[in-house]
Design a binder for these strands. Structure first.
Lengths: 131, 131
DNA sequence: ATGGGGTTTCCAGTTGCTGGAAGGTCAAGG
DNA sequence: CCTTGACCTTCCAGCAACTGGAAACCCCAT
């Protein structure tokens, strides 16, 4: 299977697939002409990676998850640990963003948004701590 | 005022302040010895930048907000537009993360997390679209 | 043989810093 | 006067996870 076909099946851009090979996540064979030749198993790995990435796992997490996936003697606790840590990070990120959103939306609502210069957004940024 | 003092007042690391000079956000004077000499106004700009950054504005947004801040004839509408667009992006990011969180937390809760290999997290990543 | 699509490699750029090396400066202490 | 330590300077590299683009090769059909 050529990279283009794999790209279609996995939804990952060819560039990304090459990158994943670069960093050792997949190791496709090569045809005589130098083209990458993906086996089914490689393609499934790539799909796995794509899904893990859409769940926000870092590449390093993905590498570890992939190893666990391949390891038929894994302990599900190891998987869960990775997922839990990631979940905690996501939650932290969400609350950080929610704080931003709350502050920002207040500011936006208090701003006239007309052609006059008076603006609470700039006023806040210019003076107090916009926590 | 030296960079260290400015760093203390603004909470920004010296490295960051130098970086902001590099990209043209501030333009401190220089003492005879080559040290940066910040005036009050530069320091206020840096505080402004720090607060804008904690609200998640990009550097380019910050650049524009700073210009508006300095422009006494600005229209608050311009400020508000920037803030609104940023707010929309934050909201998009939040909902993306919430989706991740929901999926992930379901998976984590369904995973035994013991020493057996059976794991719904890996199962999901390995098969269906984990949307 | 020519054209259009694939594919290859490599290099650079993205965002917003951060770390580190090599060196100049300054004020205090011996 | 010399040293020590805390500043400060510049420059270069690296982080994450790709993405864009150039130059060149390959394959198939006309």
């Amino acid at each position: 299977m050529n990279i283009g076909e794999v790209s279609q099946h996995t939804g990952l851009p060819p560039k990304t697939i090459r990158y994943y090979e670069d960093i050792g996540l997949v190791k496709p064979l090569r045809d005589a002409n130098g083209y990458r030749a993906f086996r089914e198993s490689e393609m499934h790995k790539l799909s796995f990676l794509g899904r893990a990435r859409t769940l926000g796992f870092s590449i390093e997490d993905c590498r570890n998850l992939l190893a666990l996936w391949e390891d038929k003697n894994r302990a599900s606790a190891d998987v869960r640990t990775i997922a839990e840590e990631h979940l905690a990070q996501i939650e932290a990120k969400i609350s950080g963003l929610q704080e931003m959103r709350d502050t920002l939306s207040t500011l936006v609502h208090n701003c006239a948004g007309d052609d006059r210069p008076d603006c609470p957004i700039l006023k806040t940024l210019g003076t107090a701590t916009a926590s």
